[in-house]
């Protein structure tokens, strides 16, 4: 039953660009997939392993900048740049994680904010990387897969974004059914108890951080190739780190589908209020976000997925 529903959902996602040919609905779906995949990546570290990061824009930005600088300065295919970005993000995540994981709870979260701010400031002042002005991805015509540029139609971007999301979900699913996944959750629940059972807490946290950082960096490269322009304000802001966290929290942290549900609710909200209200309603989506988050925190801390589960339990079996 559940499997059938997933197959239908996947087929609908695959058929969507054939039905909706206008750019805007496709754009909304692409953003849902992108933010969904970022939230899925964040969820591995924060939801499963319990390490709340508010600096994930660092890995997103590293992904975006690595591929963009490689293609703009050296003509390297963004696909290779994407891999390089993921590798670099993993290296940075380990270097940052080693000291920062000594901190717990709120202190860890605050330290990740600080790291995010430092990296953004570095890029604003780094002239070779475009400084505050940012970097353009050189336009290549005609569209080609090697160049990771599709200016004629959003359909290809759509499928790449969907692929990123599915990759993140597959990694999470695999994690849930393997030893590291159990270790991550044990660390989230009680790291002393986990250590007493032989869990190398520091190593497992770094593993979670590496997975999370790599997946986040892939999204960064995608974003750069989709918009063809990046600057530190767009790819390193604290607001992005917070948004990734909010998407997950709204949908349900520590669950496979929570981040996807969160993205499916928040992204259309943001995109449609932007379109309907134009300049006058500039921050209205943030006001609604805020209200939703307060509502979730107070009424249903396990998010929309938790709410669905609770409602599911309440209805009598067979219905």
């Amino acid at each position: 039953m559940k499997r059938a529903a997933l197959v239908v959902l996947l087929l609908a996602a695959l058929a969507f660009p054939a039905v909706f040919t206008l750019p805007f609905p496709r754009h909304v779906m692409i953003m849902i997939f992108l933010y969904g995949s970022l939230a899925v990546a964040w969820n591995i570290l924060a939801g499963y392993c319990g390490q709340i990061s508010l600096g994930h824009a660092v890995f997103f930005g590293i992904g975006a900048y690595t591929s963009t600088l490689l293609v703009a300065r050296a003509g390297v295919s963004p696909w290779l740049g994407m891999l390089a970005g993921a590798v670099l993000a993993v290296i940075v995540s380990q270097a940052v994680g080693f000291p920062v994981f000594r901190l717990r709870g709120h202190y860890f979260a605050i330290a990740t904010i600080a790291v995010g701010e430092i990296v953004q400031t570095l890029f604003i002042n780094w002239d070779w990387a475009g400084g505050a002005r940012g970097v353009f991805v050189p336009i290549r015509r005609p569209d080609s897969f090697v160049n990771f540029q599709f200016n004629e139609s959003k359909a290809v971007y759509y499928y790449i974004a969907l692929g990123l999301l599915l990759l993140g979900l597959a990694v999470t699913r695999r994690l849930e059914g393997s030893r590291p996944g159990y270790y991550f959750r044990a660390i989230r629940e009680d790291q002393e108890a986990a250590a007493s059972l032989g869990v190398h807490v520091a190593r497992e946290k770094l593993r979670a951080m590496a997975l999370s950082a790599a997946l986040t960096a892939l999204g960064g490269t995608f974003y750069a190739q989709y918009l063809l322009f990046i600057d530190p304000e767009a790819v390193f802001p604290l607001s992005l780190s917070i948004l990734i966290c909010l998407v997950s929290v709204l949908g349900g942290v520590g669950t496979l589908w929570g981040p996807v549900v969160g993205a499916a609710v928040l992204v259309p909200l943001s995109e449609y209020t932007r379109v309907w209200l134009g300049g006058t309603g500039k921050a209205l989506d943030l006001v609604i976000y805020g209200a939703l988050i307060v509502l979730v925190a107070v009424a249903q801390p396990s998010g929309l997925v938790g709410l669905a589960r609770r409602l599911g339990r309440r209805s009598p079996p067979g219905q």
Binding site: R185, E189, D190
Partner: peptide, 9 residues
């Protein structure tokens, strides 16, 4: 542990 530490969730 003296104070029990189950993985509650």
């Amino acid at each position: 542990f003296q104070k029990l530490r189950p993985f509650s969730d």
